[in-house]
Nucleic acid binder design. Structure first.
Length: 281
DNA sequence: ACGAGAACCTGTTTGC
DNA sequence: TGCAAACAGGTTCTCG
């Protein structure tokens, strides 16, 4: 489900309910997510006060006053819902973890496919944590330029689409936003990754930043199960140029769909890619 | 060393 | 209508 914009939206939604609040109760109902939840998770967190809720790539980082960091990944189908005091319904079969604050607010982690995970890290050495150590640059940072991106792509012989999904190249992109960014940059998903440098690199870095910025502003994209923490839907899905639009007209090409076939869908490394063969080279 | 494919798991949509 | 296959926003392991 969630790529960078969705995770950032969730972060914004949960931060006001966590920061400055003590975790009164942490209920773990199911430990077997993508990897087993750490032993003693509840004991480690209960009684601690949250000092910050941050994001790195697609990970949420929940920092406590004693230097513990709860690392959360939502996988494909994970979400976090805020339930007001006295308003938490009985947990369903996919409601694996509840964080209950001193204000009585429940933050409920739900994940039907269980591809998500949680782990604990230490504030002092968080950058060395195995989940975070190898991650590429944050695309919304000032430091993310065409040059930086081109350096990361140089020497790669696989398709550009596949390289951009690699979190060690750039952090936070997933299938939707890679397709959308490549469309905006006018670059073919099949192009050899290492051929992107110079002006093309700048174009691609700018397209990635722009699409992510717009998606964050829209509250992410709601396709099936994704919701903001408030329960509201994101609406960036209405701005897709190519994703999920196979056979439909490219927004910028006014050619006859019956003739050109419109947006093309191919499969790369087992995942759907959508693009306009006319505009993306 | 790199890249493609399978695996992990459940729910929903699509196609015969 | 009904059932089975395909597909889904991610990551990681294995194999060639």
């Amino acid at each position: 489900m969630p790529e960078l914009p969705e995770v950032e939206t969730v972060r914004c939604g949960i931060a006001p309910h966590l920061e400055g609040h003590r975790l009164a109760h942490v209920a773990v109902r199911r430990k077997d997510l993508r990897r087993p939840l750490p032993e003693g998770l509840s004991a480690r967190l209960e009684g601690r006060t949250v000092v910050a809720v941050e994001r790195r790539a697609k990970y949420l980082l929940i920092r406590t006053d004693d230097g513990a960091v709860l690392i959360v990944h939502l996988g494909m189908s994970g979400r976090i819902t805020i339930l007001g005091p006295g308003k938490a319904p009985p947990p369903g079969p996919h409601d694996h973890v509840d964080l209950v604050t001193d204000a009585g607010v429940t933050l409920r982690y739900t994940d039907p496919r269980r591809f998500g995970l949680m782990d604990l890290g230490d504030a002092g050495s968080l950058g060395d944590h195995p989940l975070l150590a190898g991650l590429g640059p944050e695309p919304l940072d000032e430091a993310f330029t065409g040059r930086v991106l081109a350096d990361r792509l140089s020497g790669k012989n696989g398709p550009l689409k596949t390289a951009l999904l690699d979190q060690t190249v750039v952090a936070g992109l997933g299938n939707i936003y890679v397709c959308e960014a490549l469309y905006r940059a006018g670059l073919s998903p099949r192009r050899k990754a290492g051929t992107v440098r110079g002006a093309r690199g700048e174009r691609l870095a700018g397209a990635i930043r722009a699409v992510l910025d717009e998606a964050v502003a829209a509250g992410g994209s709601s396709l099936r199960d994704y919701r903001q923490a408030s329960g509201d839907l994101g609406y960036f899905q209405f701005s897709f140029a190519v994703y999920g639009r196979a056979g439909q007209a490219c927004p910028a090409c006014d050619c006859d769909v019956a003739k050109t076939g419109g947006i093309t869908r191919i499969v790369q490394s087992g995942r759907s890619t959508f693009f306009c063969a006319k505009r993306q080279r």
